[in-house]
Simulated scan of single mutants.
Amino acid sequence: MNTPDPDNTTASSSASHGQMVRQTVAPARLKESLELNRPPSVRNASIAGLQASIAVVLAAVALHYSPWPSMAGFGSLGAMAALFGRFATPAKRRWVVGTAGALLVSPVAILSLAAWSGASPVLLLVMLSLVAGALASVAHRTQVGAPGAVIFVFAASAAITPISSGGEWLERVLATTLGAVIAWIICALTDSMREQDVKLPPPPMPAGAPAGGGRQPALTPGYAPRQAARIVACAIVSSLLAHAMGWSHPAWAAIGVIAVLQGAHLPGTIHRAWQRTLGTIVGAGIAWAILVNEPSFWQILAAVAILQFITEVIIGFNYALGQIAITPMALLMTTLASHSEAADMVISRIYDTALGALVGIVFAMLLSTLDERLHLARHHSRKRS
């Protein structure tokens, strides 16, 4: 006769779905989300922010004075490639920035083509969700690092706005490519300013990894095929819910999902949800204060450049702080690309972000494995002790 293992019984009880919900909504999760951390190198973060700001300004100005001034927003999106690889060697940095540029241009090309073909809004949101899952996997496999696939999905979301000709499709692709090329050149010319011997903290071990070290799995739960499918499902649900409720930018709900699900484990997912939601609410207020005054192209561009630099300096201390700057920057870049109404964008950003975060957490909990729930239970127990 087999007797139950008391250790297994205790572990299963502490890692039940009910316990997981209680641990998720515990005040400790919010408190942890507001903690400040020391980034590996403030200097490298500042230089990456400066590189991105310069690339954004150069790309936007070049397009503003070209025959295609309406493409300035897409040029700015391509320039975001400068954010990647800030701790890599100079040779590796050039490869990372080039790869990030390709991952910014590709979804713009694919989804702009779908928009040109006359795809319905629902089909475009489904395609965006599929592209989001693919981008998350490719970003992990190519090891482009922070800020992760959310930047690529942001570029993809801008591309689902309607276009009426092949010429407009080509303009979008070339403008995004121009921004990526400028970012590559700026990084290549200024990378000598970065610290080259920064000691990085070890990556967070996923649930189920061997205790006390051991080999890091080739694919962490955040980007394993199962998790990529989770991203697709969450993005579809959140964006279609936002669309059904008549919100004007349902694609932003998909961005909220992927930002939350980039965590390597349940505590990370919960923290990202709190941080992204709280930071977005504050940042949206800043965006409204800027946009309600109907700023000119030059004022918007200056604000984007300043906010880009601030974001990279502070986001390493706390993701919520970064969101306070990212949110107005993203809304201002959207204004450059689509000229949407200020109040409409601000409200939509808050709703869509909160919805994406909620859907991401619900799916993460419903589809969690026993190892993931045990990881959360151990984390919760350590924080209480």
Rank of each mutant, 00 (worst) to 15 (best):
L50T: 10
A325H: 02
Q19P: 02
A224C: 08
S239C: 09
S12D: 11
Q51T: 02
F363P: 03
L170C: 06
N318M: 06
Q323K: 09
A158H: 13
A242N: 09
A119W: 13
G179S: 10
S248R: 10
E294K: 15
R272L: 00
W169R: 14
I324D: 07
V105Y: 09
L366V: 13
G208I: 11
R94I: 03
S66Y: 10
S41D: 06
L130T: 01
Q323R: 12
S157V: 13
I326W: 11
A183C: 02
A342G: 14
T269C: 00
A342I: 09
A59Y: 13
A132E: 04
S137G: 15
A115L: 02
A15Y: 11
S76R: 03
A357D: 07
G256Q: 06
T353Q: 04
I314N: 02
L178E: 09
A218Q: 06
M71G: 01
G166V: 12
S66G: 08
G214H: 11
V96A: 06
I47R: 04
A188P: 05
V97Q: 10
G148M: 12
S117Q: 13
A52Y: 04
L111E: 09
T142K: 12
R215M: 11
A155M: 10
V122Q: 14
A60P: 08
Y319E: 00
